[in-house]
Write a protein that binds this DNA or RNA. Structure first.
Length: 490
RNA sequence: CGGGGUGUAGUACAGUUGGUAGUAUGCCUGGUUUGGGACCAGGAGGUCGUCGGUUCGAGUCCGGCCACCCCGACCA
């Protein structure tokens, strides 16, 4: 195992990359821009999936699965949607290969050209709404609350592990409603679910808000989002929930008969989070020693390291550890007993820190004698010797404490990195420090684009419950009624 | 896709004026070790990113391509 990861301050991107690879989360693959998610990384994703899936089901949604391929013609049915995705679509044109008649290798069989090309889904609104047409006739068929766990492909120019890969895993919810109010309510409900998940499971504080027209999803009336702040002062859009109006219903002719017996188009929402959340998780909490995982998403919450000289000592320790492991497991804690005999404790400590295991227990001859354990917490790196008595309660409390501590730490960082700018000069200076900046904006897409071109900062969102306040746009000096949230972003 | 950099053992790197590849670490075996990344001895492991060119001879020189990293444009 490689030992060193780059310091955060030295090179933040390199640190992130080192962390992902050395902690065994993911690797680059033989395919450009596509990653291999390794078992440890995938275990974290499975925890994320499990928690979210429960939240979706608790709010009345069901899972289904739609095809990977979408007929090309579907995309042109919703004008702004095709415009948004056209430049990043992978296209299937043939269905057969053959031996190269001119020599070595294999070539595409030109005789096997598809009548209509298939698009590898970049998102599934079109295929799903085309399907919904057949599912919805009456208001009694509504609401339709469907989620799918899937992979999607977006042919991005530049990729980074988890943060932006050509293929990524996500969930996408697609709901259909009889009224605008109901669809809007759903859109807000799901962004709140995302915020709840981010803060209570990932321990990442987020700001909920609505996107400006420039940043809106292709085909949406409104896009709601959660925005998180990373340790380098850049924002990361961590989840989006779109109010689609009747756009897709009209594009795919999905009508229903309402209570009054009159035909109407169906109202829609869609919402998604992706493996990008893994990036947020990694960047929000980790340090120069490696990952720091929130206990609620850590595949292994407690690791037990025996300290021993001879095999008999290990046997003795094991007799003590195995019941302890069971006790902890009955309290719902995942425990690993690291009894490898070819590695020294110090090596194991470093490795478990790299992997971000929240709690480490060391037990050696000294502890056996005094009926104690050495407990080390990953978030603060503090070590403490405690009595074995009531250890389960102690660990349960400690895990809760770590969960809330890393959230508080991230929240404190965000608060200390959130500023107000009243002039453009001040705004530009603050951007160099990184962080969230509240500033006045005249409300036009042109000014937003201008600011983006000049400073690389974008409006992350207009936060919900944003206080109204008279002011002047930092760029144009035109009147503004509220400050909006700016940042440089991933 | 543009600018810069890199590509040699699982990993990180060295390799001189072109002469047929080495160091560390990891791995395997044996022994001594084990409370913060152990040590000794022996051993295995490389079509030098790829394709082509120059040459008696290419890791080394030239060209194409590919991949990765950093900085932009694009984006969840």
């Amino acid at each position: 195992m490689a030992k060193e990861i780059t310091n955060r301050t030295e090179n933040y991107s390199q640190w992130y990359n080192d962390l992902v690879i050395k902690a065994g989360l993911a690797d680059n693959s033989a395919v450009r821009g596509c990653m291999v998610i390794k078992p440890y990384g995938y275990a974290i994703w499975e925890k994320i999936q499990a928690a979210l899936d429960k939240m979706f089901k608790d709010t009345g949604h069901s899972n289904a699965y739609f095809p990977l391929f979408i007929p090309k013609s579907f995309f042109s049915k919703e004008a702004s949607h095709v415009e948004g995705f056209a430049k990043e679509c992978a296209v299937v044109t043939h269905y057969r290969l053959k031996n190269d008649p001119n020599g070595k290798g294999i070539v595409v069989d030109e005789d096997a050209k598809l009548e209509e090309e298939l698009i590898v889904r970049p998102t599934s609104e079109t295929i799903i709404w085309n399907t919904y047409r057949g599912w919805i006739q009456s208001y009694r068929d509504l609401p339709l609350l469907i989620n799918q766990w899937a992979n999607v492909v977006r042919w991005e120019m530049r990729t980074r592990l988890f943060l932006r890969t050509t293929e990524f895993l996500w969930q996408e919810g697609h709901t259909a409603h009889a009224t605008q109010e109901e669809a809007l309510e759903e859109t807000y409900k799901m962004v709140n679910v995302y915020a709840d998940f981010a803060e209570n499971f990932m321990a990442v504080p987020v700001i909920k808000g609505v996107k400006t027209a420039n940043e809106r999803f292709a085909g949406a009336i409104d896009t709601l989002c959660i925005e998180a702040l990373m340790q380098d002062g850049k924002a990361l859009q961590s989840g989006t929930s779109h109010f689609l109006g009747q756009n897709f219903a009209k594009a795919f002719d999905v009508k229903f008969t309402n209570k009054e017996g009159k035909p109407d188009y169906v109202w829609a929402s869609s919402w998604g989070v992706s493996t990008r959340l893994m990036g947020a998780l990694i960047m929000a909490h980790s340090d120069d020693n490696g990952l720091v995982l929130p206990p609620k998403l850590a595949p292994i919450q407690v690791v037990i390291v025996p300290i021993f000289h001879k095999e008999e000592q290990l046997t003795l320790i094991s007799e003590k550890v195995l019941p302890l492991k069971k006790q902890l497991e009955t309290r719902g804690i995942s425990v690993q007993f690291d009894n490898r005999d070819n590695l020294k404790p110090g090596f194991k400590f470093a490795e478990h820190e790299l992997k971000g295991i929240p709690v480490r227990i060391a037990i050696g001859p000294r502890d056996i004698e005094s009926n104690t354990l050495e407990i080390a917490r990953r978030d603060t790196l503090e070590k403490k010797t405690v009595s074995v008595d009531n250890i389960e309660d102690y660990i349960v409390t400690l895990l809760d404490d770590i969960q809330s501590n890393i959230f508080q730490k991230a929240l404190k960082f965000r608060e200390e990195s959130t500023y107000k700018a009243d002039t453009y000069e001040e705004f530009k200076q603050l951007l160099e420090k990184g962080g969230f900046i509240y500033a006045h904006w005249d409300g036009t897409p042109e000014t937003e684009t201008l600011i983006k071109d000049e400073t690389k900062a974008t409006i992350r969102c207009i936060p919900f419950d944003n206080p109204l306040e008279e002011g002047k746009c930092i760029r144009t000096g035109k009147p503004s009624t509220q400050r909006v949230l700016f940042a440089r972003s991933y």
